[in-house]
């Protein structure tokens, strides 16, 4: 495996008194796709949301342990969450474009952070982001019409383009294809595969085939515990843990 982008050490997550994650240790390799799988309520989404501190929004949520992104503990007290989220972008389960134009959706992040010096530069950022998301050809004629007019798959790729526009280092994806039809899903999977050249991707999915298709590393969660983690090719053929075997064969 290549160099690790994120190293998680002894991470525990609590919602009030309820403990959602138990002592997670794992590493997320750079420029690879890491998939998190497991049955519903196993904590894989909660884990993903720890990686850019989205759990800060939940009242009573508290974390223990360390998450090291490029040698810096992002759970530390003096970490600026805004800066962190500019470095670690996120794509959500349901496509959630802003009720604005396609252009304004992409430009929102760069505008927030002041990542451009001229209108021309912003235009370029919007165009490259859309191109990288493979959406530019489809929307170039309606950049200034509402993003809500796009199809579900297009909307999700728009959300990916929006995340790319801030030029993050890591992109977190929380079941990005769960509300899409098979064709749109295939398109997004292709995109994920292309994106890993430049970004480190962490992906939560319900779909085992998807994990097998796009990821290089798979981690299996069960009841808040990281059961097993390893190369995708290895995990799907030779799972060592009984629970992983059961899940992969559909008995869990």
């Amino acid at each position: 495996m290549s160099k690790s982008k994120i190293i998680v050490e002894n991470l525990s997550l609590f919602y009030g008194k309820h403990q959602a994650l138990f002592d997670i240790n794992m590493s997320i390799p750079e420029n690879k796709v890491s998939a998190f799988i497991g049955p519903s309520g196993c904590g894989k989404s909660s884990f993903l949301r720890c990686l850019n501190r989205m759990n800060d929004l939940v009242r009573n949520a508290s974390q223990k342990g360390r998450i090291i992104l490029d040698e810096e503990d992002i759970l530390g007290k003096n970490v600026d969450v805004v800066l962190l989220r500019a470095r670690v972008g996120m794509v959500f389960q349901k496509p959630n474009p802003f009720p604005k134009s396609v252009y304004d959706n992409i430009a929102y992040g760069p505008r927030l952070h002041g990542l451009f010096f001229s209108k021309k530069e912003l235009d370029e950022i919007v165009e490259t982001s859309l191109q990288r998301a493979g959406l530019f050809e489809e929307v170039k004629d309606r950049l200034y019409s509402s993003a809500l007019g796009l199809s579900g798959g297009q909307q999700q790729r728009l959300c990916i383009a929006r995340a790319i526009a801030v030029n993050p280092e890591v992109i977190l994806m929380d079941e990005p294809t769960s509300s899409l039809d098979p064709i749109a899903t295939a398109r997004v999977e292709e995109l994920i595969d292309e994106l890993k050249e430049q970004y480190t991707i962490a992906l939560v999915t319900h779909n085992l085939q998807q994990a097998a298709r796009v990821s290089q590393k798979v981690s299996f969660f069960h009841k808040g515990i990281l059961v097993e983690s390893g190369r995708t090719s290895h995990m799907f053929t030779n799972p060592t843990d009984k629970r992983t075997q059961d899940y992969l064969t559909g008995r869990l």
């Binding site: 989220r85 500019a86 009720p99 929102y108 927030l112």
Partner: peptide
């Protein structure tokens, strides 16, 4: 909808 707020927060707002 809450997810609009989440989208903005996810982008670093």
């Amino acid at each position: 909808p809450e997810n609009l707020k989440e989208a903005a927060l996810g982008l670093g707002a």
